[in-house]
Amino acid sequence: MKLTLKIWRQGGKYNGEFVTYKLDNVNEHMSFLEMLDVLNEQLIEKREEPVAFEHDCREGICGSCSMVIDGRAHGPMQGTTTCQVHMRHYKEGDTIVIEPFRAKAFPVIRDLVVDRSAFDRIIQSGGYISVNTGQAQDANAIPIEKDQASRAFDAAACIGCGACVAACPNASAMLFTSAKVSHLALLPQGEVERKRRVLAMVAQMDAEGFGKCSNVTACEAECPKEISVSNIARLNREYLAATLAGELT
């Protein structure tokens, strides 16, 4: 199939602008990233700069393939990362607009690559959890109710991709932070540092310059792991409890 791509180029000879490319040999079995690989091969053959984009696992688990495709973070499919979008969802003659994630806290490094290290700093600010060392613990040493474990696991499914920030009109990182706070807050293993952790992570989130949550829920709609905004309410709850009920330190 023949496609027209409008891709944001920034860095090198490009000043931050859309450049239009034509591809006329796109196979419907290709993944979206393979389609970009084909484009880059052609650019290299023509001795032009290939389009920089991030990718690693290409199987929907690492969260690095960040880009906004026709206005949607990670493309048009529900609950799907860019690398898992396949070209069969497009048709002959389509024009596809590809842009980097847009948020002040995610500055563009080059073309479609943004710096998402703000997320790493939020995770780091959460700190450690206290566990007994020594012999490896038996997996079932601490009984956890099945539904509770599932809720924690659903939150832990967050791959830190940043689509929530990209989709949010306020560039808020609440869905991400709430997923990270939730998966430990829901488990006994997270209990020891529970209050400390939520206060530190929210403070770091604010310091990174992310926006405030207006409960638009665009994050939930675009999240490739379909993290629920009920986690955001839990984050609000955890934060309020830690602030209002926590002792002065």
Binding site: D70, A103, A105, P169
Partner: peptide
Amino acid sequence: RSNKAARGTHRYAVNHVRSTERASR
């Protein structure tokens, strides 16, 4: 105002707004 600043200076060329988000946005 601070949310506008958090979005940064560039916005998307293509905007995808779900009808359910009209009021909240």
